[in-house]
Amino acid sequence: MQAPSPILEVTGLTRYYGRRVGCEAVQFTLWPGEVLGIVGESGSGKTTLLNCVSGRLEPSGGTVLYHSRWGLVDLYQTPEANRRLLMRTEIGLVRQSAREGLRMRVSAGANIGENLMANGQRCYGRIREQALSWLERVEIDPERIDDLPTSFSGGMLQRLQIARNLVTQPRIVFMDEPTSGLDVSVQAKLLDLLRCLVSELDLSVVLVTHDLAVARLLANRLLVMRRGQVIESGLTDQVLDDPQHPYTQLLVSSILQN
């Protein structure tokens, strides 16, 4: 098998909050088209790690190397302007709370179109066209394009946030608990949608979740975090079916089996 080059290489990544550890000495590689799940209990450093690798939180140490369309970039050594450009064009972030990831006072269409404008598109007609097609793709009635997101349900908001992120065709998307807070039927729909989009658009994804069932369905590979450190990693089914670390065993055995 010929090995393609990775899209993201994280080494020795550490972030302290004062004397407290956010995450420590984290190391992983993300490959094109791969979904990497980060699991662990609340407070284990998942979100800190996600913020560090997505360019939103400067780490205390370590490097995040990103293989961008225009070359290799060290995310925290490159000038701020470069990093912001990357975050706008190649990196997406789907937040746990759609309300934080969206602008609630502008229409659904504007939420999608805004990122296209930030990337230099100026033709209103074409932007609206793309917004309409994305609403359809995430299964929101295109007639709602001029409605404010405040009138949307929780599941619709999350799908709108996904459309807003994917419209600019990023290569890598970070997702922080994208399905939590949604009822179970909506979760299934969203999971299916995410899986289809990931394979259609050949996205690489880093997915933070505390829900092992979600991890099993979406992630190819898992990192298990505890107290800021990665204690176990491997293929998703390896980690969940044959966990090695005592903490992972506890985590897996705590799920209610259906």
Partner: peptide, 24 residues
């Protein structure tokens, strides 16, 4: 992991006792 996934994709099939799928 990458190599194991590739083996599963091209060379090795596994019929488990149970079907595990996204409900929709």
């Amino acid at each position: 992991p990458q190599l194991v996934l590739d083996v599963r994709r091209r060379t090795m099939g596994y019929v488990s006792q149970f079907l595990r799928v996204i409900p929709r």
